[in-house]
Design a protein around this nucleic acid. Structure first.
Ligand code: FES
Ligand code: FES
Lengths: 135, 135
DNA sequence: TTAAATACGATTAATTTTGACGTATATACA
DNA sequence: TGTATATACGTCAAAATTAATCGTATTTAA
């Protein structure tokens, strides 16, 4: 289906909000972001946690806590984001995990798929979030 | 999830079989291809029908019938194949169909997603099946 | 006439994605 | 020091999508 999932979409919305509102308060809570982006709280909360654990956001606990953008969008690629939020960035199930192609020895297109997979990943690695969001 | 679906995978297998066996008989039946590629008959049969309806294969009815490759793999792009066999080639549900982004006016990333979508599609349009399969 | 092949509508099964619930932990502030 | 508010995360259920199957019609060589 070649689609990015909702989590990646929500992440783009959140990051766009951060980069569009550099004047306002630095810390923005998950609740606020859910409202601003019209996304379900539970889901975007998870997304923010994931971005935080990967050093893109910084989390502040407590009453007036929230998240802060701490990485430059120029330095994050679309591939990075997918890697954090998609269940898998591989073009086929067999790639990447322990269920290796070589084991299922009947497959006739291991090397074509592997090759295409690399090309797609390199493509996504070549695009920064700054490029995507500042259009 | 960014994955190609099984139908696209099976199509690659079938097309690879055709292009690897230019010496043998020109017509190959769905049954044969299912055996050669170790794929479920019903599914690959549908795939072959789809490729046939789009002018990539030519179908021959009857007892000694089957399919024949009638298009040059150089002239088919990965995008073409996805367009034939994937439920959608768009990066987000809202793109392309009648459920337009503009209608769901709360979305904050319509133009970024649209832009990224074009880039991805152009990327897939730039790769031919010959390039993919002859590695 | 019959067997073997394509064509396709409809349905079911399997998998993946999305969202929700419950609870633990941390911190500012009254 | 208690309370409200915020992040963190394990688990589960619902929804959507993908994959596979069943049944039947049509075409044609032998
Ligand atoms: S088993 Fe990996 S491409 Fe087929
Ligand atoms: S509605 Fe189309 S990208 Fe959000």
């Amino acid at each position: 289906m070649n689609k990015i999932n909702k989590k990646t979409e929500y992440a783009l919305m959140a990051l766009k909000y951060f980069s569009d509102n550099t004047q306002g308060p630095v810390l923005v809570s998950a609740k606020d972001l859910a409202e601003k982006t019209h996304t379900p709280f539970d889901v975007i909360a998870r997304v923010l946690q994931a971005l935080s654990s990967r050093g893109i956001l910084k989390a502040e606990y407590g009453v007036s806590g929230g998240y802060q953008l701490v990485k430059n969008l120029e330095d994050i690629t679309v591939y990075d984001l997918m890697n954090i939020l998609e269940s898998s960035t591989e073009l086929a199930k067999c790639l990447g995990s322990e269920t290796s192609c070589e084991l299922s020895s009947t497959c006739t297109i291991v090397s074509p798929i592997t090759n295409l997979n690399h090309r797609v990943q390199n493509f996504y690695k070549s695009i920064s979030l700054a490029e995507v969001l500042h259009v």
